[in-house]
Design a protein around this nucleic acid. Structure first.
Lengths: 218, 218
DNA sequence: AAAAAAGATTAGACTAGTCTAAAAAACGGG
DNA sequence: CCCGTTTTTTAGACTAGTCTAATCTTTTTT
C-alpha cells in the first residue's frame, strides 16, 4: 500500500513527463508545494520500492509498475471529476481540489462501479482522456491552439494544465469542449491570436490561453 | 482543520456516548484498533482544542463544538453509504469501510450537493438517521428487538452497531429495513426468540442478533 | 576556463502519531 | 479495609514526513 504522499509524488512525476518529457526534483517540489529536499527523500524511497528510476541530477522516469499506478490515479481523479460535474452539478472550475482528495480513496470495486455508473466515459469535463481499468487511453491527435495557423478551423478537445482561473475565463468567453473556432489572425509580436467561434463574433486570445487549449481539426 | 485521526477519535466518542452514555479511554482504543496510551494523548489534544471534556478516570463528554462536529461526520458517512448502496449498487454489508474513507473528504459544498442529489434522505441503508446540514436528526421511538415481548408485532427500523457478518446473516434470513415481524416466543435461558415474518415461516434469532435490531411498533 | 548561478542532495532538527513498558489511580471481592 | 486487578496516564522510543541550512554537482556566464 502506498501513502497519500507517495501517490502524490508519482502523479506529479507522471504529469511532468507528459508535459515536458522530463521530471526534475525542483519541478516536482513546485507542483506539490513542497521543498526539493523533501522530494529528494521521497524519490529515493519510491525508487527503492520500484516505482521509478532516479538518476540524480538527470531526472526521473517511471517504471512499468509506477506508470501503471499513475494511470490508475489519473483514472480515479478524472472519473471523480466527471461525477462531480455531470451528476452533482459542480462547475468544471470547482472540481480539481475535491477530486484530488477523492482519488486517494482506496477501493478497486468503488472505481469500477463508479465507472459503470457514469457509463464508461472516455473523457473528463476538461476533455482529458480517462484511462480504462487496464490503463488504456483513447487515442486522439490533438495539437495546441497556439500551434495553429491563420485560416485553420479546429474544435476544442481539451483544456490542459488547468487552473481554475483559466477555466472561468473560458466560461466567460463562451469557450467549451467541442466549440469550433476559426483562426483569423496570429500576431507575431506577442503570440496572441484572433479567433472566431462558429456562431458569434471574433475576439482575441493571449498566448497564455491558446497554449493550454488542445484542439483537433474540425 | 482537524486531522483524520482527530476526526476518528471524535466519532468514536460520539458513537460510544450514543450506545453506552459513557466513553472511556480503553473503549475508544478498542474501537479504533489502537492503544489506550495513544488515545490518552489524543484526548488531551482534543480537550485543548475545545472539542471535548476529559475527566481522567471518569470518562469523556463532547462539548457543543465537538458534538456538532461529530454530527457532521456522521452525516457525511451516512450520505456516502446511501450513495454507495442506492446509486452504485453496493450491498449494505460492503459499504462501511469505503464510507469511512470518503467521510474525510473535506468540502461543505460537496456534501450539500450530494445530499441534494440523493433527495435529502432521512435514513441510510442500515436505517440509521442522517443528520441534516444543521445537525438535526429525524426523531423516532424505537427499541431493541431483544426488549420485545411475546406477541409484539414490530417493524425493523435499523440495524445498529453493524458488522458486515451480521448484515449478511440478515440478508440470508430475508430480514430487511421495513420487514414486519411477530414475536412468537422468547426463550429465557439464552435470550433467543422465535419470530415470524408477515409472509414466510417462523425462525429463531439469537440474542446477539435481536440485540442489534432496532424496531418500532407496526 | 574560472566564477557564479542554479539545482540536487545530505545532515540535522522538528512534528504528529503511534507503540511498549512502567507508574499511578480507581475499583471490587474477600 | 486492604490487596489485586483493571484502567489510565506518563515516559521514552520509533517512524514518516517535512523543513532549513549546508554541501555537492551541473550548467551558464563572462
Amino acid at each position: 500500500m502506498l501513502t497519500r504522499s507517495e501517490e502524490d509524488h508519482i502523479k506529479a512525476v507522471y504529469a511532468l513527463l507528459q508535459e515536458d518529457d522530463s521530471a526534475f526534483t525542483k519541478d516536482i517540489a513546485e507542483r506539490l508545494h513542497t521543498k526539493a529536499s523533501s522530494v529528494s527523500d521521497m524519490l529515493k524511497k519510491l525508487a527503492d520500492k520500484g516505482h521509478l528510476k532516479h538518476e540524480p541530477y538527470y531526472g526521473v522516469k517511471l517504471t512499468a509498475k509506477g506508470h501503471a499506478l499513475a494511470l490508475q490515479l489519473v483514472r480515479k481523479h478524472r472519473l471523480w471529476e466527471t461525477f462531480l460535474v455531470e451528476r452533482l452539478g459542480f462547475g468544471w472550475d470547482e472540481v480539481h481540489e475535491v477530486a484530488e482528495q477523492m482519488e486517494h480513496v482506496a477501493s478497486e470495486k468503488l472505481i469500477d462501479k463508479l465507472d459503470n455508473y457514469l457509463g464508461h466515459p472516455s473523457f473528463d469535463p476538461h476533455g482529458d482522456p480517462i484511462p480504462d481499468r487496464h490503463g488504456r487511453i483513447r487515442a486522439r491527435r490533438t495539437k495546441r491552439l497556439s500551434a495553429c495557423q491563420q485560416g485553420d478551423t479546429v474544435r476544442i478537445a481539451a483544456v490542459s494544465g488547468t487552473t481554475d482561473g483559466l477555466l472561468r475565463l473560458l466560461d466567460a468567453k463562451g469557450l467549451r469542449i467541442g466549440t469550433v473556432l476559426n483562426v483569423q489572425e496570429v500576431h507575431a509580436f506577442d503570440g496572441s491570436m484572433d479567433v472566431k467561434p462558429k456562431s458569434g463574433s471574433a475576439f482575441s486570445l493571449s498566448k497564455d490561453v491558446s497554449h493550454h487549449l488542445q484542439v483537433e481539426n474540425a
